[in-house]
Amino acid sequence: MSDYVTLTINGSNIRVPKGTNVLDAALEYGICIPHLCHMSDLTPIGACRLCIVEVVENGKSEVTASCTLEAKEGMTILAHTDKILKARKNIAEMLVAEAPNSRAIQDVAVRCGVTEVRFPFRNKNCVLCGRCIRVCSEVWQANALGFVGRGKDRHVALPFHNRPEFCKRCWSCLEVCPMTITPCDGPMKEGEEYFCGKCESQLTMALGSIDTCVQCRLGAGFGCLRAEPEK
């Protein structure tokens, strides 16, 4: 039994070790699927839904998050169909509405083709991506953070809302948080949120060269290359 599987993403044959998820496989081969909550060292939880792809099976296609999808032999994945691009744009739009004070989210949204935000801004300063929680529990084994509450009240919290002794103050949670870098013009006031979109002009400049991203430091940090629609 081989330890590798071969799958097709956007028409190209890709060979990856067994157990790899589709998102990592695509990124490794330079196919960009925008993502936010995924970090390669952490367990994928599929929270942001930006990395959705179409899985074609028996002539039927199903939309699902690629980070939680394990690569299987003979799988056919379409990452940039019209349907996906449209859905992804809507998801990015909602993420901006939820947390406009993040340059990372604003940038990802530009890359997904968002030009305006049609949803009311909620400015919750958190998109529940769970990066902080997973870094804390999986990398540092500290378990000082977690999701608390349910439904619309779900939020990231410390036990009993106090910093426990076993928090090692490594601040990895802040390092990986997409909210720590504000948009270029600084944090937005409540009621005055807007979609930044200033990098859009750079997006067309980057279109000519393969695999170059919009010139933003955060885009590199999130390993997010330019998403090119299939012609």
Partner: peptide
């Protein structure tokens, strides 16, 4: 169990 789990 981690205390955050109990709290959650």
């Amino acid at each position: 169990a981690p205390v955050i789990e109990v709290f959650r």
